[in-house]
Nucleic acid binder design. Sequence first.
DNA 1: AGATTGTGTGTAAACGTTTACACAGGTGAT
DNA 2: ATCACCTGTGTAAACGTTTACACACAATCT
Lengths: 315, 315
Amino acid sequence: MVTIKDLAKESCVSVATVSRVLNSSGYASRDVKRRVLEAAAKLDYKPNEVARALNTSRSNIVGVLVPDITNPYFPKVIRGIEDAAIRNNYRVIIGNTDHDAEKEMKYLEIFRQNNCAGIISATWSVSREHRADSRPLVLLDRVVENHISIESDNLKGGRLQAEHLIESGADKVLVVKGSSDYSSFNNRALGAEESLKAHKTGYDTLPYAHLEQMPDEARENFMLKFGGIICPNDVTACKVLKFLATRNIPVPGRVKVVGYDNLDFSEYVHPGLTTIEQPAYDLGSNAFDLLMALAAGEAVESRIMDVKLIRRQST
Amino acid sequence: MVTIKDLAKESCVSVATVSRVLNSSGYASRDVKRRVLEAAAKLDYKPNEVARALNTSRSNIVGVLVPDITNPYFPKVIRGIEDAAIRNNYRVIIGNTDHDAEKEMKYLEIFRQNNCAGIISATWSVSREHRADSRPLVLLDRVVENHISIESDNLKGGRLQAEHLIESGADKVLVVKGSSDYSSFNNRALGAEESLKAHKTGYDTLPYAHLEQMPDEARENFMLKFGGIICPNDVTACKVLKFLATRNIPVPGRVKVVGYDNLDFSEYVHPGLTTIEQPAYDLGSNAFDLLMALAAGEAVESRIMDVKLIRRQST
DNA sequence: AGATTGTGTGTAAACGTTTACACAGGTGAT
DNA sequence: ATCACCTGTGTAAACGTTTACACACAATCT
């Protein structure tokens, strides 16, 4: 491994000077600068990030916490973070928490042990434990008092879902709910209910978990009471679509279905899934930008990103 | 941050002794052991991984290279790696290479700068550049001479696809090919063709890229020449399914479709996709185990994992 | 002329570990 | 009694950086 010492020897200056030239901090004469830079190029010098992190107590690694990378919503978000990170010469360590507070804490500890520069978290119980830690933190898709967060406009998304169904002529609507642990799911349902009430459209709500455990016969009968179904995300919507197809219930003829997320494969199911697009990738890259601003001590504000309706054949 | 020095002070021994106790290396009296361990518990000491990595020139981070985490096949693999890593007190840094050799090199450099313990790579051009590096390397889903690799049995998978179609009574079969840059895709097609020949079943092959750019009319007519379609992966299969549904071609009545991967959503498309399941998660965790064995200097051999047919309604 | 300021460079400490080496005391064999 | 060896502990160097501090010299100001 070629170190700063090799450069010092090669260019006949001290390591301090080399460091200063490389980081453009402090003074250096034209000639010395040239010599150091040439030596660095000649020896193909790359600074050791570990040594740097040790010295400055701050690595260029950011920790990212997600419930489960296997959930198809997250890869895009992560890719957004990763790309932004690399552009800024940062790396990303991902932790899957499985909604488990203990795993979260374990990862937080790991991030600390690695002198991570900051944390982006899409899971829920962090904030309390995080208080002991002074590392910058950006919350993704969940809002907690006194923390910077970034999310998409879930209320609006919910409203769009409902309005679209109403416009498409659905008489009575079923609002399928996601896990109530997440503010994002709650807000989507809230937005939808708000619109349905405003338009005086009849509706019912039901957590997906309940729907799933109903026997097929009962589930079919229950669903047939509605002309439109609002789902908390596309995965759920696809399961609903699948069920309806299996029971030979025409979509959108008999019942219309609208999802949320606009996952890649929502385009490929049949009928194509009408859904709300959230800018998953941008959510990730903006989260990273916020984190950097935070780390730089800038005044930053939480951000809400816009969503839009994607019309397809399921409505 | 509580350091080894604090422990030394607290338990009235030198830092060297503390380090030895903590790592169970070298001697230590019963009493000293107890005092150090108690101090560590009392102060909630966690070793700083950066300092350790600097000293030993080996961090407990492994680098993972994938083409694109957004490709739905990879999250499972990565999750497998991640879980195995955490179990062994390792962390994972992921790099998306987008099949770009330059990005690969950049990530390899980054891994080096971070004193990474090893590399798991699912991309193609690494091996040549890697030679300068002595870091342990495990190749995933691709085989290269003189490198340890792990993959699923693509030849067998291809055979299973073909045999199943033949059994289901498909007269003539279309083998849709994936990118020829990947040995995995090539082997799948090879296995399929092998079986088709053995059973004297007529077939044709076509890269998916070609299929995709045909006008709808022509594509329909072309597809209707076959009773069965073999796809290189589930994403492709879903696109094909979608096209057939749009053109009102009955599946499996008129044409049967078989995919490869058994992604989560393959169960939720309609009709449910018959496919080959590869153990993505286990591929990942086994890759990590191989890497550890390699790093420990053990003699390890490349591994091939079994695949199996998942029957659903598309055939 | 002397004081002040700006520029350029080196010395050495620090970050938090691990580990080679030295040394001391105890045990058992000769 | 001498030697060898094992056990237990401390000192200090090393890993590759950054940076506080000191110093030297030149230019500018009074």
